[in-house]
């Protein structure tokens, strides 16, 4: 299956620096601190390159073979010089080490008043949730449009300007890694334990989020977006982005369709009959399914409800039990809406 690659214009391409030689946008407190160290190391490396390669080129030209009876210099070692070029680089190395270590310690100790955001990594999709605004996962339309197709929405981390934010991250299947280049922060998202990461955004705008730990086929399209908003707008925008309830006059099936897009069901269950990872929803409702333990039963309301909450209880034959449980993620009303939506898939 071809990677469902999120086209870049849908994903708020980052304001990359004009030329590859300029640094990335420095959009977080860590970025500002780190770039000075980055430039310092670069200067150190350029100077050492000039010295070493310069000496090499000079010797190559000066001591090239003149004639067959050249006589070469008998020098075999020079203790003073050798000690010199061991100690001097070591001093610079210690400076870089201490500078880097101090920044790293600062990066790994989040302030107590940081805003708590929960990130969950799952095979090829990030889910951003705000404990302060319980509801659905926070998504946004491409180019920050008001409304768009549910399946086009990208997971988005809304962050207030100049406020520390702490991400508590966990994965449900394999190791992923949450990486925001513009903020210079990255942390592996390991299943079975929580890892955390914090930053303070100091520049407004949209920045991409990558997954940098290889996690399978669509590793390269497991992208998300960070939108930095002024403190005043932040709360309202997040509330609107994460609210997930039945609008008035909206049919349960349409609500179910929105849930289908938001919760990442599309990653494994298609609507057109083609089996991706899980069975396709087309014509599923009411069909008798052959289970892996040999028995068979009709795919009715409570089978679908049970499969959403405990997916590995009754697995259809030929499919591997990979589906994560949505226990506690979906309210009853939302599960009913999803069932309505599946019924509608003839």
């Amino acid at each position: 299956m071809i990677a469902t690659f999120i086209p870049p214009d849908k994903l708020g391409t980052p304001p990359m620096s004009e030329s590859p030689w300029a640094l990335l946008p420095t959009a977080s407190n860590h970025a500002a601190a780190l770039d000075t160290l980055y430039v310092f190391i670069t200067i150190l490396c350029v100077i050492s390159m000039i010295l070493i390669i310069g000496a090499q080129l000079y010797f190559m030209v000066k001591y090239r073979k003149r004639s067959d009876n050249d006589r070469t210099n008998p020098i075999t070692h020079n203790t003073k010089l050798e000690i010199g070029w061991s100690v001097i680089p070591s001093l610079f190395l210690i400076v870089i080490f201490v500078w880097g270590e101090v920044q790293f310690m600062d990066m790994s100790s989040p302030p107590a008043n940081a805003i708590d955001v929960r990130i969950t990594g799952q095979k090829w999709q990030w889910t951003v949730a705000y404990p302060q605004f319980p509801g659905g996962p926070s998504l946004s339309c491409p180019g920050n449009a008001a409304d768009c197709e549910p399946t086009e929405k990208t997971p988005t981390l809304y962050v207030p300007l100049n406020e520390p934010v702490r991400l508590t991250m966990n994965s449900v299947d394999v190791i992923h890694s949450f990486y925001i280049p513009a903020f210079r922060v990255k942390k592996d998202v390991v299943p079975g334990r929580y890892s955390n990461l914090w930053f303070t955004a100091i520049e407004e705008g949209e920045f991409p989020v990558f997954c940098t730990e290889y996690c399978g086929d669509e590793h390269s399209s497991m992208l998300a977006k960070v939108i930095v908003l002024p403190k005043s707008e932040w709360a309202a925008t997040v509330k609107k982005a994460t609210e997930l309830k039945l609008e008035e006059g909206e049919t349960m099936a349409h609500y179910g369709e929105r849930l289908y897009g938001i919760n990442g069901c599309a990653a494994c269950h298609t609507l057109d009959g083609e089996t991706k990872v899980g069975p396709s929803f087309k014509g599923l409702y009411g069909r008798t399914e052959q289970l892996s333990d040999g028995s068979s039963l009709a795919a009715d309301d409570n089978y679908i409800r049970e499969s959403i909450l405990e997916p590995n209880a009754k697995v259809v034959a030929g499919y591997s039990p990979q589906m994560p449980s949505f226990q506690g993620k979906l309210k009853d009303e939302q599960i009913t809406a999803l069932i309505e939506f599946i019924k509608a898939q003839k």
């Binding site: 780190l34 160290l37 190391i41 870089i96 880097g100 270590e101 790293f104 990255k186 940098t212």
Partner: peptide
């Protein structure tokens, strides 16, 4: 030339904070 460039760029990756940005 090539090994010196390789060795020097190792400094970026062994420094803790720059490695956070450059890892993987």
């Amino acid at each position: 030339w090539t090994f010196t460039v390789g060795g020097l760029t190792g400094l970026y990756l062994s420094t803790l904070s720059t490695d956070v940005h450059l890892h993987d």
